[in-house]
């Protein structure tokens, strides 16, 4: 017996909304970054699950997840670099303190 697709989709949806919730409520930039990673991972799960269950003879979904993981790694590097610089200037990584950057 196998796990039906819907179970996996439930997991990924839960992960997505947990990430979204974290993104909205946290004020700490690092935590927000982690929330974004959660969202990306929920998407990865979706891709892999759909690939496995609907088109088992293709690898498109897997490749997409690989790409997303790569991009997420790069994004994390850039984001953390920005956050470190911000900390050096402001002595804070609170998102409320970044408002002045709108100009």
């Amino acid at each position: 017996m196998s796990i039906p697709l819907t179970h996996i989709l439930f997991v990924s949806t839960a992960l997505f909304f947990i990430g979204t919730y974290g993104l909205f409520t946290r004020r700490n930039l690092i935590t927000m970054l982690m929330s974004i990673e959660l969202i990306l991972n929920s998407v990865n799960i979706n891709f892999v699950a759909f690939n496995k269950y609907l088109y088992p003879d293709k690898l498109n979904g897997v490749f997409f997840s690989l790409f997303i993981i790569t991009v997420a790694a790069a994004e994390a590097a850039v984001a953390i670099a920005i956050i470190i610089n911000l900390y050096r200037n402001h002595r804070s990584i609170d998102v409320e303190d970044v408002k002045e950057m709108k100009n």
């Binding site: 993104l23 909205f24 927000m32 998102v95 409320e96 970044v98 408002k99 002045e100 950057m101 709108k102 100009n103």
Partner: peptide, 9 residues
């Protein structure tokens, strides 16, 4: 355009 990232999101 408040500059608050979270409202943008």
């Amino acid at each position: 355009q408040s500059g608050s990232i979270q409202s943008y999101t």
